[in-house]
């Protein structure tokens, strides 16, 4: 029983982390039809900002990291993606791939390839012990933050004017522009929000692992791709649900697979992705923008 509960707690907190990453990617995809490979590098930049400011007050470290990630996200949009807005999705995809590669190696150039370590908010790695169940404080914090952010985003999208405009743009960008939605501000705000999400993930991720490498964002972002496809490309709630599903799937596979098969866990996750693409390409929750337009 404890084993099952432990796994459920692990699954939810891992799923929450994935959901946040997937949300950042899904947000941009919905509006621009861009799968942003470089989102992982935003997370990586945040982590290196923590490394760079290490030794200062932890609040300052966190603020600097968040600020850097948000600025990087906005600059990324302005410099690399805005000129390509009319390009086809394939070109955009390659551009984000190149940008990700560029940022990874820029950091490698400056800080070297060797993993760095940072202690940040060490208190969070302690455990609550409840009836034999070990619940890291970090997991509780991760889940709480995810819920707060999700609720916040939903309120933002439903209640605020700019949120409504963003939903309109995600549904039909051309039409939204015709009725007066300003493309530049909508997209800039989408990137700002994805920057906020990436920044928060940096902080959570560093607390959890404590190590950073220039490549650290890659695996997270790959998982998030799987999540956005499973949840439904172009649907925000779908992205969050997809993230949760992938988290649960990963932990479940880890628990169920035999020792010989366990190293192949990620192969199973990607096989599920292919299965979804073939059988239910619209994902669990269909985003309205996801249909192919002629």
């Amino acid at each position: 029983m404890t084993f099952v509960l432990q796994n459920i707690v692990d699954a939810i907190s891992l799923g929450a982390l994935y959901a946040l990453t997937a949300l950042g990617i899904g947000l941009i995809f919905g509006i621009m039809r861009l799968i942003n490979f470089a989102h992982g590098e935003l997370i990586m930049l945040g982590a290196y900002a923590l490394f760079f400011t290490f030794g200062m007050h932890e609040a300052i470290m966190g603020l600097v990291a968040m600020a850097l990630v948000i600025v990087a996200a906005i600059v990324m949009e302005r410099v690399a993606f805005r000129p390509l807005r009319r390009a086809n999705p394939a070109t955009l995809l390659i551009a984000s791939f190149a940008l990700a590669y560029f940022l990874q190696h820029l950091v490698l150039l400056i800080f070297g390839a060797r993993p760095k370590s940072v202690t940040f908010l060490y208190e969070l790695s302690e455990y609550f012990v409840v009836e034999g169940l070990r619940i890291p404080k970090l997991q509780v914090v991760t889940i709480a933050i995810t819920i707060v952010l999700l609720v916040g985003l939903v309120v933002f999208f439903r209640r605020s004017s700019i949120g409504t405009q963003m939903r309109a743009a995600a549904e039909d960008f051309g039409m939204a522009r015709l009725v007066g939605v300003r493309a530049n501000s909508v997209i800039a705000i989408a990137f700002l929000l994805s920057g906020v999400l990436a920044g928060i993930i940096s902080l959570l991720y560093v607390v959890q692992t404590g190590t950073l490498t220039p490549r650290m964002g890659v695996s997270l972002v790959l998982v998030a791709f799987v999540a956005t496809v499973i949840g439904g490309m172009g649907s925000l709630v779908g992205a969050a649900v997809g993230g949760l599903v992938v988290g649960v799937l990963t932990v479940a596979l880890q628990a169920v697979l035999t020792v010989e098969l366990r190293p192949y866990r990620d192969a199973f996750v990607f096989a599920v992705l292919i299965g979804f693409l073939l059988v239910r390409p619209q994902g669990l929750l269909r985003g309205r923008s996801a249909r192919e337009r002629i």
Partner: peptide, 21 residues
């Protein structure tokens, strides 16, 4: 059977699987 971004994702997933194996 896939087009566009789905095809790109699908082929990527196959690469990831081969790599893991």
């Amino acid at each position: 059977r896939l087009s566009g971004i789905s095809a790109a994702m699908g082929t990527f997933a196959s690469l990831a699987i081969v790599y893991v194996v």
